[in-house]
C-alpha cells in the first residue's frame, strides 16, 4: 500500500493528532467560543419568539383583545430565554434548552401514541378479522397438512431483469 493511501486512511479513521488533549489556553478559548455560540442561538430564539408574540399582541390582539395575553406570555418567555442566554449561556440557558428537548421528545412520543393507535384500531384490526373470515393468512400460521411435501416457493420461472435492481420494491 502506498504511503499516500496510508496517510489518507489514517487521517480519515484515526486522526489521533487532532484528538490530542487541548492546552489550557485552547480549552479556555473553546469555552469562550462555545458560550458565544450559545448566546447567539439564544438571542436568535428570543427574536423569533418576540416576533411571534408581537404578531399575537398587535395582530390578533387588535381584533380579539383576549389574545393580547398570549402575546404578553410569549414575549415574557422569549425575553427570559434571551436574557438567560446573555447572562448564563452555559448554565441556565443550556439547562432550558435541554429541558425543551426533553419536553419536545415526550410531546413527540405522546403524539405518536395519540395518532398511531386509531390507524391500528380502524385499519389493521377490522382487516385482520376480514382476512381471518376469508382464511387469508400471509403468515401461514396453521401447522401444515402432512401431505404437503414442500414449503419452498418456486421462483425458477421468474425473469429477474436488471431494472429490478433499481426499484425499492
Amino acid at each position: 500500500m502506498g504511503s499516500d493511501t496510508s496517510k489518507r486512511v489514517a487521517e480519515t479513521v484515526w486522526n489521533w493528532r487532532a484528538a490530542k488533549e487541548p492546552t489550557p489556553e485552547e480549552a479556555a478559548q473553546a469555552a469562550v467560543d462555545h458560550a458565544a455560540e450559545l448566546r447567539k442561538r439564544g438571542v436568535i430564539q428570543a427574536c423569533i419568539g418576540l416576533t411571534i408574540a408581537a404578531a399575537f399582541y398587535f395582530g390578533l390582539g387588535a381584533y380579539y383583545p383576549k389574545w393580547k395575553i398570549v402575546g404578553i406570555i410569549g414575549a415574557s418567555i422569549a425575553s427570559f430565554i434571551g436574557l438567560s442566554a446573555l447572562v448564563s449561556p452555559t448554565g441556565l440557558f443550556a439547562q432550558i434548552e435541554r429541558g425543551i428537548f426533553v419536553v419536545a421528545h415526550w410531546v413527540g412520543v405522546g403524539l405518536t401514541h395519540l395518532l398511531m393507535p386509531p390507524i391500528y384500531w380502524f385499519f389493521f384490526v377490522p382487516f385482520r378479522f376480514l382476512f381471518r373470515r376469508g382464511k387469508r393468512d400471509k403468515m401461514l400460521r396453521t401447522f401444515p397438512d402432512p401431505s404437503e411435501t414442500t414449503f419452498w416457493v418456486d421462483r425458477s420461472g421468474e425473469e429477474q431483469k436488471p431494472e429490478h435492481y433499481l426499484r425499492q420494491f
Binding site: 405518536t112 398511531m116 393507535p117 384490526v125 382487516f127 385482520r128 382476512f131 400471509k138 403468515m139 425499492q168
Partner: peptide, 30 residues
C-alpha cells in the same frame, strides 16, 4: 435490501396479529 418490500412485510405482520402487536407497531412504524 428493498425497503418498501420489507415495510410491506412488516405491515402484513401487524395485519395478521391485530389487535395484538400494538406496542411493537407503535415502536416500529414511526
Amino acid at each position: 435490501d428493498k425497503p418498501i418490500t420489507k415495510f410491506h412485510r412488516i405491515l402484513e405482520t401487524y395485519l395478521s396479529c391485530a389487535p395484538r402487536g400494538l406496542r411493537s407497531y407503535l415502536q416500529a412504524v414511526p
